[in-house]
Every structure is written in C-alpha cells, then in structure tokens.
Design a protein around this nucleic acid. Sequence first.
DNA 1: TACCCGGTTTGACCATGGTCAATACCGCGC
DNA 2: GCGCGGTATTGACCATGGTCAAACCGGGTA
Lengths: 247, 247
Amino acid sequence: MLNAIETDVELDELRRNCGYSAIADFELPAGLSIADFQTLNTTVRERVPLDRGSILFHQGDSFAALYVVRAGSLKTFVEGSEGDLQILGFHLPGDIMGIGGLINEHHPCSAEALERSSVCELRYTKLQEVSASVPALHHQMIRVISGALVNEQRHMVMMGKQQAQRRLVVFIRSLAGRYARLSRDPLDLTLSMSRSDIANYLGLALETVSRLFTKLESDGVLAVNRKSVRILRRDVLDDLCGNEIDI
Amino acid sequence: MLNAIETDVELDELRRNCGYSAIADFELPAGLSIADFQTLNTTVRERVPLDRGSILFHQGDSFAALYVVRAGSLKTFVEGSEGDLQILGFHLPGDIMGIGGLINEHHPCSAEALERSSVCELRYTKLQEVSASVPALHHQMIRVISGALVNEQRHMVMMGKQQAQRRLVVFIRSLAGRYARLSRDPLDLTLSMSRSDIANYLGLALETVSRLFTKLESDGVLAVNRKSVRILRRDVLDDLCGNEIDI
DNA sequence: TACCCGGTTTGACCATGGTCAATACCGCGC
DNA sequence: GCGCGGTATTGACCATGGTCAAACCGGGTA
C-alpha cells in the first residue's frame, strides 16, 4: 500500500509488461505498490506469438495458468459431444482468459487465436505465492473473476430474447467500447473473427448476420468491407439497441 | 490445515450452520480445519425468513454481503431500462448469491424469493478478515466464483441455439440433478417459479413452455400438475437433450 | 493468367416458435 | 357456496429468422 505509483512514466513502464493490465490495471483499487508490481511481474512469462488458428489451451486440458492477451485476439468456445460448438467470447488485448479452469483442475473451454497473437502466461501456483505476500492482489483477482461473471450475464441477457438486429448492434457497440478502452479508434473496427463466429456467438445463423451487415450498410449506419467495419452513425446505432450493453 | 475434520458427526453439526455448504462444502479442497470453520461461522448471521416476492437485494444496491440459500428458493434477474427483464438463475438451498457484486460496490442484479425462504448473510468485510487468517478460504472463494462463471457459460450454450424442447428438458434435468445433490427425490420436482419465469430464463415465450409441458406429458415423459412435475421416463429425457447439461 | 478454395453474400422457401386472444383452472376471501 | 384474480392452457395466425442452394468475391498458388 505504501509507495503508490507516482509518475505516469513508471506506470507506462509497467503497463508494457504484459499481465499488468487485466490483473492490476483493473482499477487499481487498493493501490498496489511498485514493489508489488515487480513481484507480480515475476509470475509473468512471455510467450511466443500464436499463429492464427492455433490453440492456447484445449477444453479438458489441465489448468495451470491464466493468460492475458498481449496482442491480437482469441476466441474461447466449448464443444458439445456431437461436434456442436458454442463460442463464449472474443478476447482482445488486456483480457484475461482461463478463469473457468479455477473451479477444478481443468479448462472448461478451449481458446484459439483468431489471428497472429501473443499472450502472457500467469502460472497459477506462482500467482498464489505472490498473493500470499500481496494481500491486495487477492481481492483484485476476485474482482476480475466476478467481472467476468457479470459480463457473461450481460451476454446472456442479450441471448435471451433480443431481436437479431439488436444482437448484432449490441455486439458492434460493445466492440467499439472495448476499442475505446484500448485507445484505438472506436469507429473503425477490424473483425478478426469470421461471420460464422459472430453468428455463433450471438445465437444466429451466419446468413442472418451477413444480411444484417448489408442492411445496416444500406441504412447508412455502417460501412462494411469484409473484416473492416466503420461506424458512420453512432447515434443510430445507439438507439437501435435500447441501452443494452455487452462486455 | 491441521485438525482436519475427523468425524461425520462434527461435519454434520457444521453443515447445519448455514453458510457452510456453498463456501466450504464445495469440495473442501485444502481441508479446512474445525477451527477454521468456527471462525468462518462467526461471519454468518442468521436472517429471518423471506416471504414470497420479497427482495433480498436490488439491482444497484450497494454490495455488502454474499448470501447462501438456507431454505426455499430465489430467482436473480436484471431489469433493462425499458422494464424488460431477464432472469439469470434460480437458487436452491446451498447456492450462493450476490457474487456479481464483488466487482464493484454494487449488485448487478436483483434477488427475489420465489416462496417463503431463508438465507444466510456472509458480510464481505468479515469474510475478508477471516480469509486473512484462513488461507484455504481464499482459494475456496475463487473456486466458488469461478464455478458460478462456468455455470453461466453452460447456460449460455443452451440459450445459444438449442431447440425449445431441448431447452426445457435440459432445465428439468438440471433441476433434477440439483435435487439429487440436495438428497431430495430427483424425480419429483416442485417448480417454485412460474411458467413465465421458466420461459424468460430459457429465452422462450411462456406459451411455448406451457405447450411443451403438455407435449412431454402426453408423450408419457412427465406427469405435470401445475407446480409439481414428476419425471416418468428419465431415459427419454436424457436422450431428448444430447448430453447437454445446465447448472 | 487461370484456377481453386474458403469465406461471404444473396435469394427463395419454410418451420419454429412468438403474438394475440379466448378459455380454463385453482386458490382464496367473502 | 359464489365470484374474483392471477396463472396456466389451448387455439389460430403470422413473422422472424433458419435452411438450402447458388453465385460471388478475394487471395493465394501453379
């Protein structure tokens, strides 16, 4: 609690160390000290980039670490017994993955890179060691997990009973929000996932998603070109979804 | 870690103290000691029964405690800006509620009793104090929250793209499973929630749910009488839902 | 250049399940 | 007993969005 971070320079320095954002940047509630961060950083092990399509961890794998996206993007999904598949989420830089594995020793879902990406590994045993000496980290972890839960619930609200178009709009808006938080241009999105991924995530058919993109484009709300989506009318987008928000 | 629980008598004694099950019974991973449990029990404050329809906590309320269902049942739900409502879950004895409030200081959903119920309050500040001296409790809490997350994800898989009938069947089966874990007869269910609640939870219209109950009854799978549902053909139920499981 | 392949778009058709509305049922109070 | 209110059931109709199928596009490769 002492030695709270004083200069933005130091903060940025730490920010560059991956693993920082999701665990620590998450509102810094108790004011972790510089020393705490350094201890935390010892748990971080850099990983080589993942190629598009490569699996970070597979459903059923034994759980050993949490992962923080450093660059690129990934999707997490579960596969049912009959080859059916449900995408649980898309993960951008700063997002933490693998939380579900905490409950028992196995990952309940798989994670796959949507493009060339890189992630940081936080080995859980080390994380536990560190948090023994850094009490604030504990509460922080609980907050992070709880946050993931709330996000999941928000997503469920949307899956519940929203119109197809509203689902897509909520998705676009949420992506824009996450871009903004990453200091990217929130009006210029690059969809690293396929239409089919989006459809699956939103509980729609991929044809429906495709049609909706076309419609929103012809309505002058979006400019769509394959993976690039530009938001032209943020205002229209906003009232197309009645204040619903997603991740 | 010392003084691990030795006799079932002592265990049962503690089990009767509410708050035990969800936090501690959850697989007792690190083997909390008797003393640990007694410390834990100091955080538990008995609550008077809740009447049907009464609110335990309301969306937006400031978060101060977790709750464990002791008897009866509750539902949690979020309400959108335009009076729209989504039910997130139904909670039976042993279930823990209020986890979403950990992320910031406010409950992201409301909890309402579906019948005369009683819950135990675990004040979070006290829980934190205790877990400072009981390291195993920390990991335990993380597991519990992570478990809630995984449940949420399972529910989402179902909302994603399942047929209406499969959704209802998965719901029934999951309820049966929870009954079994509570040592109740898993073939004789009492639905404390209304058809409309079920429909909302499953992302269907209440008429659809009603029709499905009728259909399953005329198929000889269930015997339905208002709130009472008896499972006649567990086997049929099982292969109606392709191994999907819910909470 | 031609070719192919995956992802995407578009069209036509249709089914599931939602909506609206009437009726039935149950419990409760008078 | 009767009537009332909330809940559940049933029916008829229809819309949204799913399915099937064909065409299209862009990028990579021979």
